[in-house]
Measured scan of single mutants.
Amino acid sequence: APRKVEMRRDPVLGFGFVAGSEKPVVVRSVTPGGPSEGKLIPGDQIVMINDEPVSAAPRERVIDLVRSCKESILLTVIQP
C-alpha cells in the first residue's frame, strides 16, 4: 500500500535522502538524524512528488521537483 510521507527541509541536511538514478526512482539511503529518518526506508519506490506522478519521469524532472520544494515535500512511496 502506498504511504504518504511529508518532510520539512533541514537547512543543513536538506530532506536527508538520496535517490537512485534509475526508473522507477528508488530511495538509496537515508541520512541519520535527517528529516527522512523514520519516514523513508532504503528501497522505497517514489511514485509521486507532491501531486505529480514520477514513476516514468526523467531524473532531471525528479531533481527539479525536489529542489523546488523550499520548505516541505510530500512523497508518495511504496515498498515494491
Rank of each mutant, 00 (worst) to 15 (best):
D10R: 03
V62S: 02
D51F: 06
V26Q: 13
V47M: 12
I41S: 15
R59E: 11
V12H: 15
N50K: 05
R67S: 13
G14L: 02
P11Y: 04
V25L: 14
R3M: 06
V66K: 02
P80V: 05
V77M: 03
V5S: 02
F17A: 01
P35L: 01
D44A: 05
A1S: 05
S68F: 08
P11N: 06
Q45C: 08
S68Y: 09
Q79R: 15
R9I: 07
L74P: 04
A1P: 02
K39G: 05
P58Q: 09
R59Y: 15
K39L: 14
V62L: 06
A19M: 14
G38S: 07
P53T: 11
E6N: 13
I73T: 06
I78Y: 11
P24E: 03
E6F: 15
P11Q: 07
G43S: 05
R9P: 09
R61K: 13
S21Q: 09
I63N: 15
V47I: 15
R3K: 12
L13S: 13
K23T: 12
T76C: 09
V5Q: 03
D44N: 03
D64M: 05
A19S: 10
L75D: 04
P58A: 10
V18R: 06
V47Q: 11
A1W: 03
L65Y: 09
P24W: 00
S72P: 04
V54Y: 01
P42V: 11
I63A: 14
V47C: 12
T76V: 07
I73L: 13
T31P: 03
G43D: 08
A57I: 10
K4R: 15
S29F: 06
E6Y: 14
D51G: 14
S55C: 06
E22T: 06
V18F: 05
V77A: 05
L13F: 11
S36E: 01
P11G: 07
S36M: 03
I49C: 05
V47T: 13
V62T: 05
R28T: 14
E37L: 05
V66G: 02
S21D: 14
S68L: 09
G16E: 01
V18Q: 07
V30F: 03
C69F: 06
G20W: 08
R28P: 02
E60L: 07
V25K: 01
E37H: 09
K23G: 13
R8C: 07
M7P: 02
P2H: 15
V27T: 02
P24M: 03
P32L: 09
T76Q: 08
K4A: 01
Q45I: 08
G14Y: 02
S72I: 06
N50H: 08
P2R: 13
E52I: 11
D64E: 13
M7E: 00
R9L: 07
K70T: 08
S68W: 05
P53Q: 12
R67W: 06
P42S: 08
S29H: 07
P2C: 10
G43M: 06
L65A: 10
G38Y: 07
P35I: 02
S36W: 00
V18H: 11
V26G: 03
N50R: 05
V30H: 00
L65Q: 08
P11K: 09
R9F: 12
V26C: 10
S21G: 15
D51Y: 07
I78A: 15
D10A: 04
S36Q: 01
D64T: 08
A1H: 15
V54H: 00
P2K: 11
P35V: 04
V5C: 03
R61Y: 13
V62Y: 05
R8N: 09
P32Q: 13
P35A: 06
E22K: 06
E37P: 00
V27M: 01
M48S: 14
V25H: 07
L13W: 11
C69S: 13
R61E: 10
V66I: 13
C69T: 11
N50Y: 06
R67N: 15
Q45T: 08
R3I: 08
S29C: 07
G34R: 00
F15G: 01
S72K: 15
T31C: 08
G38D: 10
S29W: 05
P35R: 03
Q45N: 07
T31R: 12
P2F: 13
K23S: 13
P11A: 07
C69I: 06
M48K: 11
S21L: 11
V77L: 08
G33R: 08
V25Y: 07
P24H: 03
A1F: 06
V47H: 10
G16H: 00
R67H: 12
I73V: 13
N50L: 04
P2D: 09
Q79M: 07
K39I: 14
P42R: 07
P2A: 09
R28C: 07
R61S: 12
N50M: 06
P42M: 07
E71Q: 12
R9Q: 04
I63S: 15
V66L: 15
E6A: 09
P42W: 03
F15L: 05
F15Y: 11
S21Y: 10
I49K: 01
A1E: 04
E37G: 06
P42L: 08
M48P: 01
M7C: 05
Q45P: 00
L74W: 13
I73M: 13
V47F: 08
P35M: 04
E60F: 06
L75Y: 02
D44C: 04
E37Y: 11
I78P: 03
E37D: 12
G14D: 13
D44P: 00
G14Q: 06
P2E: 15
L74H: 14
I78L: 13
D10M: 05
S36Y: 00
V54D: 00
